[in-house]
Lab assay of single mutants.
Amino acid sequence: NQASVVANQLIPISTHLTLVMMRSEVVTPVGIPAEDIPRLVSMQVNRAVPLGTTLMPDMVKGYA
């Protein structure tokens, strides 16, 4: 099972991601792979992401 990136807190819209905001967890459905966490740092979310939500490629500007 592959770990995905999950929000560690509420991430407001247009926030630049930091390591503190993300954790890796095995979830269904599978989202952005956990090994991409370093790549996600300083990218922006294009919507509010609630605590515990799996980050999907379409939620992060410039990821997909």
Rank of each mutant, 00 (worst) to 15 (best):
N1Y: 15
A3E: 12
A3S: 12
A3Q: 11
S4A: 02
V5H: 01
V6G: 00
N8K: 08
N8R: 09
Q9V: 11
Q9F: 13
Q9Y: 15
Q9H: 08
Q9L: 13
L10V: 11
L10W: 10
L10P: 10
I11P: 01
I11Q: 01
P12V: 05
P12S: 07
I13G: 09
I13D: 10
I13C: 15
S14D: 15
S14H: 15
T15G: 06
T15A: 14
H16Q: 12
H16V: 11
H16Y: 14
L17Q: 00
T18G: 04
L19D: 05
V20A: 15
V20W: 14
V20L: 15
M21I: 03
M21A: 03
M21V: 03
M21P: 00
M22Q: 00
M22A: 00
R23M: 05
R23K: 10
S24E: 12
S24H: 08
S24F: 06
E25R: 08
E25D: 09
E25T: 06
E25C: 11
V26M: 12
V26R: 05
V26L: 12
V26F: 14
V27I: 07
V27H: 04
V27P: 01
T28A: 14
P29N: 05
P29H: 05
P29L: 05
P29S: 04
P29I: 06
P29F: 04
P29M: 05
P29A: 04
V30G: 08
V30Y: 14
V30M: 14
G31K: 00
G31P: 00
G31D: 02
G31V: 02
I32V: 07
I32K: 00
P33W: 10
A34M: 08
A34E: 09
E35D: 09
E35T: 14
E35Y: 10
E35H: 11
E35A: 10
D36P: 01
D36M: 12
D36H: 14
D36N: 13
I37E: 01
P38N: 12
P38E: 09
P38F: 12
R39K: 14
R39V: 08
R39D: 06
L40N: 00
L40V: 05
L40C: 03
L40P: 00
L40S: 00
V41C: 06
V41N: 03
V41Q: 06
S42K: 13
S42P: 00
M43T: 04
M43E: 04
M43P: 00
Q44H: 08
V45R: 00
V45Y: 00
V45A: 05
N46I: 15
N46R: 11
N46C: 10
N46V: 14
N46H: 09
N46M: 13
A48G: 09
V49Q: 02
P50R: 11
L51C: 11
L51K: 12
L51D: 11
G52R: 04
G52H: 08
G52T: 03
G52E: 04
G52A: 06
T53P: 01
T53V: 14
T53H: 14
T53S: 10
T53A: 14
T54W: 03
T54V: 10
L55A: 01
L55Q: 01
L55G: 02
L55H: 01
L55T: 01
L55R: 02
L55Y: 01
M56Q: 13
M56T: 12
M56R: 08
M56P: 01
P57D: 05
P57L: 05
P57C: 10
P57V: 06
P57Q: 07
D58Y: 14
M59S: 06
M59Y: 12
M59K: 01
V60M: 04
V60W: 03
V60E: 02
K61T: 15
K61Q: 15
K61H: 14
K61C: 15
G62I: 04
G62T: 06
G62F: 09
G62A: 08
Y63K: 03
Y63D: 03
A64S: 13
A64N: 13
A64L: 14
